[in-house]
Design a protein around this nucleic acid. Structure first.
Lengths: 210, 210
DNA sequence: CAGCGTACTACACATGCGTGTAGTCAGCTG
DNA sequence: CAGCTGACTACACGCATGTGTAGTACGCTG
């Protein structure tokens, strides 16, 4: 098998950029380095993408397409018991993990985040059916925060790995993480009364559903 | 009041660096820019800190000191009903927020993260007393993941703000966020049986407490 | 074959940046 | 006063990097 994997030069450049941006960050990554990885001249990078920023935009766009595909796949398959399907799906993207992490933290990759929120909201809609009390905040709001939390482990994987004593991206780490998440997600930190009491102590007027 | 705030040049440089690193990131921030903000020559930056990386190390160290102080203060004051004291404390640091965010995501600022985990573990020890079943994973592990989750909103604040429709760092945003967190933390995503079922379906041998 | 557009390369340019050097000035010590 | 040390500045060097330009090879179309 050819090391260039039969991809067009343009695609090879994009993939190399994804890797370099992910590994070193946008600033430290160099067009020359990307070109070398893609086995093309640095001029060709400019020829195809125009500028470094445009190259990153192309990477973002490519990522958005891939996330759409994953999204459709997950949506097609009910995948019932998957708590942290979010992390799983993202981890599955493998080499793109670092890129995604940076993109998310820098506030880019909106479609990615929003798609995952959608998914989360769907799942939450199911869960809400079994719920006795009426939520005081939108499902959208809950899904958003919940998504951010689900992504936290990936975002802070160095620290989480250190705290757990295992690399969270290793099989052992994933296993332990799953057990921790199961525990956290099945044991509320607050009882309903505690929550109500604290909500009552919140400053400002009681907020209506938005 | 003097705009230079009566700080020594060294301190002004450090503070300026904190701001610049936070706003633009380590790479995009320039020693010259930092020097300008601190109203000193770029040479003095080198004189005091030796190199750009050493300057960042000094920032990290300064941050660690501040976090220690916050840590002690929080520990001294029982601060009973504070769910998201983590975010609160960090948000309180204000101008350092962006710096902290980057440091955490880049895997630096270990003392910061670990201190917060400690705090979280303390809180969790209290909560565990009211718990009927015996956790299958360490408190340390739960505290770690829980801390990462608590930090998620700050890490991904752009996306969370977009999802909530309010800037999470504005008063309105903080209020809404508190309500969302109260809801999420008082309603488990999984029932104990569901969790048990899913745990049973996990691959690998059942893991002992570590 | 002529003409032409596209993929692609080699190379030069300009610039911003971290760093290194030399030197000034104030304050302290003997 | 002489001598020294440390805070501080001005300035130049070298280098990496994004970008711009000129040119080549190849395939298509008439």
């Amino acid at each position: 098998m050819d090391s260039r994997e039969d991809l067009t030069a343009r695609a090879r450049i994009r993939d190399a950029a994804l890797r370099h941006f992910g590994e070193h960050g946008f600033d430290r990554a160099t067009i020359r380095g990307i070109a070398a990885t893609a086995e093309v001249s640095s001029g060709l990078v400019r020829h195809h993408f125009g500028s470094k920023e445009a190259l990153r935009d192309a990477c973002d766009a490519h990522l958005a397409r891939m996330v759409s595909e994953i999204n459709d796949r997950v949506r097609a398959d009910p995948a019932p018991g998957e708590v942290n399907y979010v992390s799983v799906s993202l981890a599955a993207v493998g080499p793109y993990r670092d890129y995604i992490r940076r993109a998310l933290v820098e506030g880019r990759a909106e479609p990615l985040f929003d798609k995952v929120v959608e998914l989360s909201a769907d799942w939450m809609a199911e869960a809400d059916k079994k719920r006795s009390d009426r939520p005081v905040v939108t499902r959208q709001a809950r899904a958003t925060v919940s998504t951010a939390m689900a992504l936290a482990v990936t975002m802070l994987h160095e620290h989480v790995s250190r705290g757990l004593g295992v690399d969270v991206f290793s099989p052992d780490g994933e296993d332990l993480l799953a057990r921790v998440l199961l525990d956290l997600h099945s044991h509320p930190m607050l009882s309903p009364d505690e929550a109500a009491a604290m909500r009552a102590r919140l400053p400002g007027k009681p907020r209506k559903r938005r």
